[in-house]
Amino acid sequence: MSLLRVRGLAIDYATKGGTLHAVSRGTLDVGAAEVVGLVGESGCGKTTLARALTGIVPRNATFMGGEIVFEGRDVLNGPPDAWRDLLWRKISFVPQSSMNALDPVYRVGAQMTEVLRLRGGMGRAEAATRSEELFAMVGLDPRRASEYPHQFSGGMRQRAAIAMALALHPALVIADEPVTALDVIVQRQVLDTLRDLQSRLGVSVLLVTHDISVVAYVCDRVVVMYAGEVIESGTTRAVLEAPRHPYTMGLTNAFPDLERAGGTLAPIAGAPPDLRAPPQGCRFAPRCPFAQARCRAETPPLTIDADGHASACWRSDEAAALAENAKDPSTWTLMSTSAA
């Protein structure tokens, strides 16, 4: 049984231009002690989905359906207090940029002990000891606990955020683009720390990123999102080496050598659809070089094979041939000229 099971999650945003369907088919699993990458272009709904797992969503967001099952209990459709009670004790969060995620008027150490005392039920002395321990654990000098967030470098803030997320021994850490704001060398260091602590503590991590090289570097499994929907998932190796969805092929195509770090997703011709009025059928069809009539009419379901590799494409049984075709850059350029 997986630690986290999300099925058919749908989240709408009320915006001035109308209702925006930010997430419409959110389906993923995170197993015990597993690192799962959640990838996609910006605006594909990956951050919305990840944050929604804590139940803390922006004012204009509404859950439209689906289920979020954590340790066998559906928290989305259960009592809100039970979900709230899981926060930080079982599910914690590492934000995108810790500059704004740490309160600027309190010392970093005080923000650490706040959560240890209020959510961990520790006394003052115990919290202080644990706080020092956590600082040391992520490679921060515990003496710097008495400094304010703005006195930390970006990398240090991110380490502090990781330490804070691990404070109460959670089962699942959701990390939203944890290294995006950092330079490449610091990215590596922070990712190493994260990976090392994850395996030592046996915690599960859901890592949201737009960076395929980060996924290749630390993730056991990967979930690919496009236009608010999960379109492919499986082991990192299977998804990156034998992608079944043309969108994933386009993504991985930009990285023939996955060992080469620091790349980002190469643009595929065209733009993602307007989520206030998503297209009928497969949402990727307008940009897909392999799209057929059926793709534009019917939405392909997310189907899972025996190995646990899932994809939502009408032509997934031809995947191997399409993937070969997709490696030729002209497939994509021809597509873009014919589309134009």
Partner: peptide
């Protein structure tokens, strides 16, 4: 601000988020 959202994600009591943060 993100730090208010983070305080909510930490499950801190609402009064504490409003007053102290």
């Amino acid at each position: 601000e993100d730090y208010v959202m983070m305080a909510r994600m930490k499950g801190l009591p609402e009064w504490r988020i409003l007053l102290l943060h």
